[in-house]
């Protein structure tokens, strides 16, 4: 019975996403040292911090692209099925359950990672059809609508390499949305873009936040973070140094590390 991902009454079901006391180390480097995070439905939580502070790793732990050494993750009342922490490397106990969960946690990557051998619309349709077994015609309609929504309907039959970075990232967002995700994970979505292309991606993300999508965002775009986030978490050396509403954190950072980070980045 232990193998079934349980929907438990003891779980923190008030939170849509609950990350509890995550530790992660790569060889000698301890990247996360006991990080917890809660997000309610329709909330946007932003992770900020210097590079190497662990924010991307934390995001990648949420969909188990990185497997935390310790700690648990709950999504919509279901705990991700990881083996118990016994000192050794933890394993995914139930691959199928994790795949189902990942299908509902769409991730948008810094380097877009559109599948280079597929056209834009094929990229958007791929996972709904081959992971969720969605009907093809219906998925095509949905994909077309999403591409129109992010403003690249005319690129549907182009290949990723034929698009600008901003267009690729918008296509990647359409690909994520086509899975009808419970939570959207953004891993520095504008960091690989030329400055003049950042705006078009942020605009799409603003719209998503405005329509009440649950989002976890790693970003260096402070004005965007400040504007759309319900909660901002400042990570420093693998731990949460400070968190709060954007107003609290940006106006009155409490810790020296956060003050320094903000003054550096806002210059």
């Amino acid at each position: 019975m232990d193998e079934v991902p349980e929907r438990s009454s003891t779980g923190p079901i008030q939170s849509y996403l609950s990350v509890q006391n995550i530790y992660k180390r790569y060889a000698e480097l301890e990247v996360l040292k006991g990080v917890s995070l809660e997000a309610a439905q329709h909330e946007v939580v932003s992770l900020i911090g210097a590079s190497g502070s662990g924010k991307s790793t934390l995001l990648r732990c949420i969909n188990l692209l990185a497997i935390p050494d310790r700690g648990d993750i709950w999504i919509d009342g279901v705990r991700l099925p990881l083996s118990q922490d016994d000192g050794g490397p933890r394993r995914i106990r139930d691959q199928k359950a994790v795949r189902l969960m990942r299908a509902r946690l769409a991730m948008v990557f810094q380097s877009f990672n559109l599948w280079s051998h597929k056209t834009i619309i094929e990229n958007v349709m791929e996972a709904p059809i081959h992971v969720l077994n969605a009907p093809k015609a219906e998925t095509r309609d949905k994909a077309e609508a999403l591409l129109a929504r992010v403003g690249i309907a005319d690129k549907r039959n182009a290949y990723p390499a034929q698009l600008s970075g901003g267009q690729q990232q918008r296509a990647a967002i359409a690909r994520a949305l086509c899975m009808e995700p419970k939570i959207l994970l953004f891993d520095e979505p504008t960091s690989a873009l030329d400055p003049e292309l950042v705006g078009e991606v942020l605009k799409v993300m603003r719209d998503l936040a405005a329509e009440g999508r649950t989002m976890v965002v790693v970003s260096h775009e402070m004005s965007f973070v400040r504007e759309v986030s319900n909660k901002v978490i400042f990570l420093h050396q693998g731990g949460i140094a400070e968190q709060g509403t954007p107003a609290e954190l940006f106006r009155r950072p409490q810790t020296e590390a956060c003050q320094k980070f903000l003054s550096n980045i806002l210059q």
């Binding site: 969909n63 795949r99 299908a103 990557f109 990672n113 599948w115 992971v131 690909r175 899975m179």
Partner: peptide, 15 residues
């Protein structure tokens, strides 16, 4: 990144 995008979207190893 091509693999990560596939894994993150819930694809099995074989898919």
């Amino acid at each position: 990144g091509q693999l990560e995008a596939a894994v993150a979207s819930g694809m099995s190893w074989w898919t």
